[in-house]
C-alpha cells in the first residue's frame, strides 16, 4: 500500500494528517470528535452499570451532556464489597504514604486542569468560576494531604489514669463510608460539583476510610473524570468508588447497607435527612449532614471533617510496680 502512494500525491488535511487524494481531487474531511463514555468507577475499574441503564443530564440551555450510567442498587452493593476489601490495606498504610497519594491526586488534577474547566463550562459555569473551582479543588487535596499524618497527633491523648496503667486514646478510621456528594445545584458559586465532591472525599480517605460516592445527578461529568485522576494517582482500587445516578433512587440503599459504617449527606432535603437518620439505626451508622457548609469558604475544610469518620480507641496496659518503684531519676 505505502509503496503505491506517491509522495507528490499527498496533501495535508485540516486535522494535520496526510491523506491520499484520488485523481488529484482533495477530499473534504472534518475530523469527527471522539466522545467520552462516562462510566462508573468500582474497585479501580471502570465498568458500565450492571443495570444497563443510562440517563441524559443536560445543561441550562438544554444541551445533552452525555449518556451517563444510571447506577443501580446492585452497583452500590458491588462498590461496597470493593470498598470493604480495600479497608485493611488502605487503613494499614503509613499515614505518610496516604499523604503522598493525596498529594499525587492533586498533581494529577493540576495536570488535567483544562479538562475539568472545560467540563464545568459545559455544565454552565463561567470560565472564571470554573477556574476558581478547579484551583480550590486542587488546593483542598493538598490541604488534606498535609493532614494525613497530623490529625492523629491533634486528637490523640495520653490519659493520666489514677491506677498503674499506661493509657492512650487514638483516632481510627470507622471503615466504609457512603457519601451522597453535594449536588452542585444550589446557588451558583456556593456549591460545586467538583469542589463539593473533593471536599467530602478527601477527609474521609485522609483518615484511612474507604468510600462509595454518589456524584451530582445533574452535573456528573467532573466526578467521572475525577475517577480517572484517582486511577492514575497510586490510590489503591476500591478506596474511592464513584457512582452516577439518582439520589432519589439510591439514597436509602446508601444508608441501608449493613456493611457500611458511616453515611455523609450534603443536601438540605429534610425528608431525606430524616430517612437517613432513621435507617442509620439499623446498624448504628455514624451520620454527618453537611447541608450548611459553604465549600468555597474556609469552613469548607478542617481536620474536624476528618474526625467525623473516626472512632476513638483507648488502650490500657499495666505498668509494673509504679507505686513501689521509688525514685528512678
Amino acid at each position: 500500500m505505502e509503496k503505491a502512494i506517491k509522495k507528490s500525491s499527498l496533501k495535508v488535511s485540516e486535522n494535520g494528517l496526510e491523506k491520499p487524494t484520488a485523481a488529484g481531487k482533495p477530499v473534504s474531511t472534518k475530523r469527527l470528535e471522539v466522545m467520552k463514555t462516562y462510566k462508573i468507577y468500582i474497585g479501580g475499574q471502570f465498568p458500565r452499570t450492571e443495570s444497563g441503564r443510562y440517563y441524559i443530564p443536560t445543561n441550562a440551555a438544554g444541551k445533552k451532556l452525555a449518556n451517563v450510567c444510571l447506577s443501580s442498587r446492585k452497583d452500590f452493593r458491588d462498590a461496597v464489597v470493593a470498598a470493604r476489601g480495600a479497608v485493611s490495606g488502605w487503613s494499614g498504610r503509613a499515614a505518610f504514604n496516604r499523604s503522598q497519594i493525596l498529594y499525587r491526586m492533586a498533581e494529577m488534577l493540576e495536570g488535567r486542569k483544562a479538562q475539568f474547566i472545560d467540563e464545568l463550562i459545559q455544565q454552565d459555569a463561567t470560565k472564571a468560576k470554573a477556574e476558581k473551582e478547579v484551583n480550590l479543588s486542587i488546593d483542598r487535596l493538598i490541604y488534606y494531604a498535609g493532614w494525613c499524618d497530623k490529625f492523629q497527633q491533634l486528637f490523640s491523648s495520653v490519659n493520666p489514669v489514677a491506677s498503674s496503667h499506661f493509657n492512650f486514646s487514638v483516632p481510627e478510621p470507622t471503615g466504609v463510608v457512603s457519601i451522597i456528594a453535594p449536588q452542585g445545584d444550589l446557588p451558583a458559586g456556593r456549591q460545586g460539583s467538583l469542589l463539593g465532591l473533593v471536599s467530602v472525599i478527601a477527609p474521609v480517605i485522609a483518615g484511612g476510610n474507604t468510600c462509595v460516592v454518589l456524584a451530582s445527578e445533574t452535573k456528573p461529568l467532573c466526578a467521572v473524570t475525577f475517577a480517572e485522576v484517582l486511577n492514575s494517582s497510586d490510590l489503591p482500587g476500591g478506596v474511592v468508588n464513584i457512582l452516577t445516578g439518582k439520589p432519589s433512587e439510591l439514597a436509602s440503599w446508601f444508608v441501608d447497607h449493613m456493611d457500611v459504617n458511616a453515611t455523609i449527606y450534603c443536601e438540605k432535603d429534610s425528608t431525606v435527612q430524616k430517612m437517613i437518620r432513621e435507617k442509620s439505626a439499623l446498624n448504628l451508622k455514624r451520620i454527618s449532614l453537611y447541608d450548611k457548609i459553604n465549600w468555597y469558604s474556609e469552613e469548607g475544610q478542617s481536620p474536624y471533617f476528618i474526625m467525623d469518620t473516626q472512632e476513638i480507641k483507648t488502650t490500657w496496659h499495666p505498668v509494673e510496680n509504679i507505686a513501689g518503684a521509688g525514685g528512678g531519676y
Binding site: 490519659n159 489514669v161 476513638i312 490500657w316 496496659h317 499495666p318
Partner: peptide, 25 residues
C-alpha cells in the same frame, strides 16, 4: 473502643469510654 492488654475492666475518669459499630457512638 476500649482495648485492655494484660488487664481487663479498668476504668478511669480521664480515659474515654465508648463503642465501635453497634455498641454505640
Amino acid at each position: 473502643g476500649v482495648v485492655w492488654a494484660n488487664t481487663f475492666n479498668k476504668f478511669d475518669p480521664t480515659s474515654p469510654f465508648g463503642g465501635y459499630k453497634e455498641s454505640g457512638f
